[in-house]
Design a protein around this nucleic acid. Structure first.
Lengths: 360, 360
DNA sequence: CTGAAAGCGCTAACAA
DNA sequence: TTGTTAGCGCTTTCAG
């Protein structure tokens, strides 16, 4: 135990070891205290004498000590790591600026902690299982779920595994999962109200997938507002798409066929609004004089629309931040809780904002 | 050592522990072998008898055993984790589809391994140091660097710390870092050649930042090709921007002022091409009949350009994959290497492709 | 081919 | 307030 670390009988082998990082032990020795004391200082809890603390901090600085996460994790059973899981069914998810902005927010919220973010992308069943196993076996302290296709299984599996979970958007079938979402219903209502206010009377909508809360909520906002205004809004005023440009284009074409005289469209996403614009242009309709288009700002692509699109802006970045905040709260709560089921779930809803762009 | 794990004198405390994940020990017991044997099977190396192997695998399946990464990492000194570090100076980096596609490629390449990806975003000096310390202290096996602003410091610091590193794009000042890049020079040449071939004689370029290899290389491609064709290409045919739409717009305005009769533009990025299009339109020039624009496909935003843009497409996703492949090779090489400095660095260059879009 | 034993670096009771 | 003592779950010589 007291022998030097330089093994005398292995002169050649020593060369290849990359100067091992200083350990708690080394710090303790240099500071003239025990490992336990150093540990206390590092985890800045407990009562430690000022002198001891200073000595330890000095030693840490001198050695450039950084705690070994693996060792710590092994005993604390915390990993200081959270996973961002995304279920990517379509090929376009990653290219979606929505994802990028959210990630940005997540990262931003994480910088004040010393948690790490691991990215897990699920593309198929085997990967799903692998991720589930990974997450379920204590490899992460919590999970952020971006389920772009409103898939319930993953969420319930994760939370069933007793791992703190926060998801973006609401689960359609189970409201017992913590979630953070933009005010999609309110935003959609505001969009449609704007159209009504500017004198439009035949307002159609291009709705998103109805197996996702975003899709459902934005359609609901449309329906509610259109009814409130006493305007038509039956099924043939609604065309569903899949949040892509192509989907928006196709939906717009169907709507034009059904209602050649329509004078406004609320699209449940920017990408779809872009598609709608193209279809309208192809049909020889002038925008926005002839037909007004309002999109829901999923994608930050609005600037590329020509003419400029009026949009409902959702604070995507803050969405990511709020997810982290909520998750951290759950992780800390959970530490003391008894069984797996947490307290009553919170559903944070962030406000949206109407952005009117001057039509050139 | 032989005592049961059920402590007889702690009846109440047991309730709140979350059913601990099965350990190697449990598997060994069930399979009737020793921990060492299980370990050998799990790391499927070594010579193990078929019977033992089968018994162990059965036990693993039955228990749903997953190795504890922390414990493993503690002894192997490998973390099975690689970091993707991005130096985000501008606010737009994250929203850049280039990043998204690359990330996608990285993730894809990673699925065949059991490595995890941690995302580190650097926004300021303190974070830079923190990341450096994190990476330098063996918390990751390797680093992927997306240095969107050609910052050398970070790369040299990381590689000086002896951590395997692969970066996207070339380092301007130091060619001793492994890198993966698209064929920017060749792509730019092809773009310009295309313009020449279609009869354009006054070809300007909107170049990217000259402190990044992408910016430098694409400009170089332009210059080389324009010279080869005997066309003008002096400094006043070149306007530099910062890879944004606004930058492209401003650059285009300058070029128009200097050369009102120009009949083609090669923009070093899609976003800048988009800006150029706007400026040209504002100036009353018809596109592409009047002025032809070719962009370099950084962003996958080409479809949103109207009229359609001819572009040089770079395989961004494959870029991410190749980075991972190269990094893995380095990580495995490094295991046996002597001192820190690796073998001669490789600079993988991926081909680009000319995509001609029919102008509506 | 297999098992026993010794830690990896750290935290967490428990004593002092 | 501090030090001592056990391990956390795993890999890895070293014997058998």
């Amino acid at each position: 135990m007291t022998a030097e670390h330089t093994a005398p009988d292995a002169p050649a082998a020593a060369v290849q070891q990359q100067r091992r990082a200083p350990t708690l032990e080394a710090v303790a020795e240099l500071a003239g205290v025990s490992r336990a004391t150093v540990s206390r200082v590092v985890n800045d809890s407990e009562r430690v004498s000022p002198e001891a603390r200073d000595a330890v901090n000095a030693a840490i600085a001198e050695l450039g000590y950084v705690p070994n996460r693996a060792a710590r994790s092994l005993v604390t059973r915390r990993t200081d790591t959270i996973a961002l899981i995304m279920h990517e069914r379509s090929d376009t998810v990653f290219a979606d600026p929505f994802f990028a902005s959210m990630l940005r927010g997540v990262n931003h919220a994480l910088t004040s902690t010393d948690l790490q973010l691991v990215l897990i992308q699920i593309q198929g069943d085997p990967q799903r299982d692998r991720a589930l196993r990974y997450v379920g076996n204590g490899h992460v302290d919590g999970v952020l779920l971006i389920s772009l296709h409103g898939d319930d299984e993953l969420a319930t599996s994760v939370s069933k595994a007793g791992v703190p979970l926060v998801m973006a958007g609401r689960l359609l079938t189970d409201d017992r999962v913590d979630s953070v979402d933009a005010d999609n219903v309110g935003g959609a209502r505001r969009a449609v109200r704007h159209l009504v206010t500017t004198g439009r009377r035949e307002i159609a909508t291009i709705a998103g997938p109805q197996d996702m809360s975003v899709g459902v909520d934005r359609l609901r906002g449309y329906t509610e507002e259109v009814q409130a205004a006493g305007l038509p809004g039956s099924a043939d005023w609604i065309a569903t798409g899949d949040f892509t440009e192509a989907g928006g284009r196709a939906a717009m074409e169907r709507l034009l066929a059904a209602h050649p005289t329509l004078d406004a469209v609320f699209a449940a996403s920017d990408l779809m609004a872009l598609g709608a614009l193209q279809a309208l242009r192809a049909a020889g309709r002038r925008i926005p004089t002839d037909v007004a288009v309002v999109g829901f700002d999923d994608t930050a692509l609005a600037p590329y629309a020509d003419p400029p699109l009026t949009t409902i802006r959702q604070p995507v970045e803050r969405l990511g931040e709020e997810m982290v905040h909520l998750l951290l709260r759950r992780i800390n709560d959970g530490a003391g809780a008894g069984s797996g089921a947490g307290a009553d779930p919170s559903a944070v809803v962030l406000p949206t904002e109407l952005v009117i762009r001057s039509s050139a």
